[in-house]
Simulated assay, not measured.
Amino acid sequence: MSLESVRDFLARKAPEIRIIEKPTSTATVAQAAEAHGVEPGRIAKTLSLRVGGRSFLVVTRGDARLDNRKIKAVFGGKASMLGAEEVEALTGHPVGGVCPFGLANPLPVYCDVSLKAFDEVVPAAGDIHAAVRIAPQRMAELVEADWVDVCQEPAPAEGANLP
């Protein structure tokens, strides 16, 4: 059902975007990066969060970590991650396949500015075997997301030259 809701959403709003299905699981950032042949940062992970009584989604680059101070400044309180059952009930997508497309319930969606480092990112498509390739700006437009800055700067790659 979840993959179908994403198919329906894309057919209505972006018929040019093709869903890519893989035989192996892409439920984690590492698995998705390997399956799609991209660096982990290009995997657009969708986090299901709650601040106070308000639930929402934040899409970040795959190698980013949330910054609690920034979250509190932007959303007005400490964020907590939703449990797997609640995530699936709210989004209609299983953990590992959560994306901002084809949601079971209307939820506010935010895209972290860290995604803007890439011309194309790979978010899940409602299933642990499915994803799409999309420009971050196009993804934000399709899901009517607001841009926020809520992540820590990604650590330099191991072995990278530091100034």
Results as ranks from 00 to 15, higher is better:
F9I: 01
L10M: 04
L10E: 04
A11M: 07
A11H: 09
A11F: 09
R12L: 13
R12S: 13
R12D: 15
R12H: 14
K13S: 15
P15L: 09
R18K: 14
I19S: 04
I20H: 10
K22L: 15
K22W: 11
P23M: 08
P23I: 05
T24E: 15
S25N: 09
A27Q: 09
T28N: 06
T28Q: 05
T28R: 06
V29T: 09
A30R: 15
A32M: 11
E34I: 12
A35E: 06
H36E: 15
G37C: 07
G37H: 08
G37D: 05
V38F: 05
V38H: 03
E39C: 15
R42S: 07
I43G: 11
I43T: 07
T46E: 07
T46W: 03
S48L: 08
L49I: 02
L49A: 05
L49D: 04
R50V: 09
G52F: 08
G53W: 12
G53L: 10
R54P: 05
F56Q: 01
F56H: 01
F56T: 00
L57T: 01
L57Y: 04
V58G: 03
V59N: 05
V59Q: 04
T60P: 02
T60D: 01
T60Q: 03
R61M: 12
G62D: 03
D63Y: 01
A64W: 06
R65Q: 14
L66P: 06
D67E: 12
N68Y: 15
N68M: 15
R69H: 13
R69G: 14
R69I: 11
K70E: 12
K70P: 08
I71E: 06
K72G: 12
V74N: 07
G76I: 00
G76K: 00
G77P: 00
G77C: 00
G77I: 00
G77F: 00
K78D: 11
K78C: 08
K78M: 11
A79Y: 05
S80Q: 13
S80R: 13
S80H: 14
L82Q: 01
A84E: 14
E85S: 11
E86F: 07
V87L: 02
V87G: 02
L90R: 08
L90A: 06
L90K: 05
G92P: 01
G92D: 03
G92T: 02
H93G: 05
H93I: 13
P94L: 07
P94C: 04
V95K: 07
G96K: 08
G97T: 10
V98S: 01
V98E: 01
C99P: 03
C99G: 13
P100Q: 01
